[in-house]
Computed example of a mutant assay.
Amino acid sequence: MAKNSGFVAEFKQFIARGNVLDMAVGVIIGGAFGKISTSLVNDIIMPAVSMLTGGVDFSQWKIVLKQAVVENGEEIAAAVSINYGSFLSTILDFLIIAFAVFCLIRAINKFHRKKEEAAPPAPPEPSAEEKLLTEIRDLLKASR
Rank of each mutant, 00 (worst) to 15 (best):
F102P: 01
I91M: 02
L104E: 07
F87R: 06
I15Q: 09
I108C: 11
S127W: 05
P126G: 04
L40Y: 02
A24D: 09
D22R: 12
E125M: 13
K141C: 07
G85S: 07
V20F: 11
F58R: 00
M1L: 13
V80Y: 01
T53F: 10
G73W: 01
F58S: 00
R137K: 07
K62E: 09
V80T: 13
Q67L: 09
I45G: 02
K12A: 12
I45T: 03
V101S: 01
E74Y: 00
A68M: 06
M1W: 02
I105C: 07
I63S: 05
A100I: 03
I63P: 02
T53E: 03
P124C: 06
K110F: 11
G34E: 02
K12C: 11
M51S: 13
A118L: 14
R113M: 07
I28W: 10
K114Q: 14
Y84Q: 03
A119D: 08
S86H: 03
G85N: 08
A107R: 03
L133C: 07
S81T: 06
V80W: 02
I136T: 13
A9Q: 11
R137H: 04
A16Q: 12
G85W: 03
L65Q: 03
F94Q: 11
N4M: 13
G31I: 07
F102H: 09
K110Q: 08
L133W: 14
S39W: 07
I44Y: 14
R17K: 14
P126W: 04
D22I: 09
M46L: 14
A16R: 09
Q67R: 05
N109L: 15
K35L: 12
I91G: 00
C103N: 11
D22F: 10
I36G: 06
I63D: 06
I29F: 09
E117Q: 10
M46I: 15
L40V: 08
E129M: 02
I136E: 14
I45D: 02
A142N: 13
E116Q: 14
A9I: 15
V25T: 14
S39V: 10
C103Y: 11
K35S: 10
I29V: 15
K66C: 00
R113V: 14
F99W: 10
L21V: 13
G85A: 06
E125G: 05
K115F: 14
G55F: 08
D22N: 14
V20N: 05
L104T: 04
F87C: 08
S143Y: 09
W61H: 06
V41D: 01
I96D: 01
L140Y: 10
E130Y: 12
I105Q: 05
S81V: 06
P124D: 11
F94C: 11
E130H: 08
L95R: 05
F99M: 04
E129D: 07
D22W: 08
A122G: 04
E74G: 00
K62L: 08
E71N: 00
A77E: 02
G26V: 03
K66A: 03
V8Y: 04
G6H: 09
I105M: 13
V25S: 07
W61R: 05
